[in-house]
């Protein structure tokens, strides 16, 4: 096993002989991974790019909110998926404390909102328009919600304000908070068998699109300040009476010290930008094709040399 390691190390050194001049530190670049596939595969993709440049890379599993504290302290070097909706707050908090900075946006946009799997449309044909919801509230009813419809929102700490929106838009729905992403999937999975209509919180890009085709509900378009100024949005007396922004950012974050320690890798990081289809493809390798993340990353790199080679060449 030792032999093999040395060999592959030598191969990398040969292949990237030119990289030696770059003054990147030999210390491993620590890349955090979380518990959803696209992020894990993307981290491995970027990690393998760094490795091909002669850097040492290491992966640590971290909590997706706590990670910004770790980036700030330099425990990990970067974060590849900063979702505006989910992690914007943690990111901004860490940004204010100092120690990490914005390393640019991906091409991909993110969206998170009320969502339903396609089969739901059969029971409630007026969708995706939000005004159709009240008419078919009854099809979403469950024993404990009585005759009101049931909407399964994300965990409370994601601060999605589902209840406020239902109230503001006069929706005849009870909003229940799931405890975790897994709870959301379980709910959809349970409904899948006999095509029961469900309405849950969801976001894109993620693996669910590949497993369960579905759509977001079209709420009144987001206006800036909809969460602060009652006047914005259709209901003049309420906050949260708009849908979420349909094009949230997906950022990269880097530790302030990264640029000095691994200048070349840092340049590559700045250049990196994935699109929605690319991210979906990464997730699909793992979630649908049952690959391990490392293999998925290899497969993706092989299939997409045209995408990532220029980033590396520009940095060298």
């Amino acid at each position: 096993m030792k032999l093999k390691l040395t060999l592959s190390a030598a191969a990398i050194a040969l292949a990237t002989g030119t990289a030696v001049h770059a003054a990147d530190s030999d210390d491993p670049i620590v890349i955090p991974i979380h518990n959803w596939s696209s992020q894990i595969v993307m981290s491995h993709v970027v990690g393998q790019i760094f490795e091909s440049m002669g850097n040492n890379v290491e992966f640590v599993t971290t909590d997706s909110q706590a990670v910004y504290e770790s980036v700030r302290l330099g425990d990990v070097a970067l974060e590849l998926e900063v979702w505006e909706g989910a992690f914007g707050a943690s990111f901004r908090a860490a940004l204010e404390k100092g120690g990490l900075h914005d390393a640019g946006d991906h091409d991909a946009v993110t969206r998170e909102d009320w969502w339903y799997p396609m089969w739901t449309k059969d029971a409630c044909p007026g969708l995706p328009d939000w005004e159709a919801l009240n008419d078919c509230a009854a099809v979403f009813a469950t024993p404990e919600t009585g005759d009101k419809g049931r909407y399964l929102d994300g965990p409370v700490d994601w601060l999605k304000h589902g209840a406020e929106r239902a109230e503001a838009l006069g929706l005849n729905f009870t909003v229940i908070n799931a405890g975790s992403a897994a709870a959301l999937w379980a709910e959809i999975g349970a409904a899948e068998a006999d095509k029961k209509p469900v309405l849950v919180f969801n976001w894109t890009p993620n693996f669910a699109e590949a497993v369960w085709p579905g759509e977001f509900v079209n709420f009144p378009k987001w206006e800036d300040g909809c969460d602060k100024d009652p006047a914005k949005g259709p209901n003049p007396d309420a906050l949260y009476d708009c849908g979420n922004p349909a094009t949230g950012y997906l950022k990269k974050a880097a530790w302030d010290g990264m640029g000095d320690k691994w200048p070349t890798a840092y340049k590559v990081l700045q250049a990196i930008s994935f699109t929605n289809p690319q991210i979906a493809e990464m997730a699909k390798f793992v979630d649908v094709d049952e690959m391990e993340p490392e293999e998925a990353a290899e497969a993706w790199l092989e299939a997409n040399e045209a995408v990532w080679k220029p980033w590396v060449e520009a940095a060298m």
């Binding site: 518990n35 959803w36 596939s37 640590v60 599993t61 909590d63 706590a66 897994a182 999937w185």
Partner: peptide, 22 residues
């Protein structure tokens, strides 16, 4: 401890549950 970033069986389990792989 997978919840605070311990790699291994727990982390894999969380990831699998997160992508609904029963």
């Amino acid at each position: 401890t997978a919840f605070i970033g311990m790699p291994g069986l727990g982390a894999k389990l969380l990831a699998m549950m997160g992508s609904f792989k029963l």
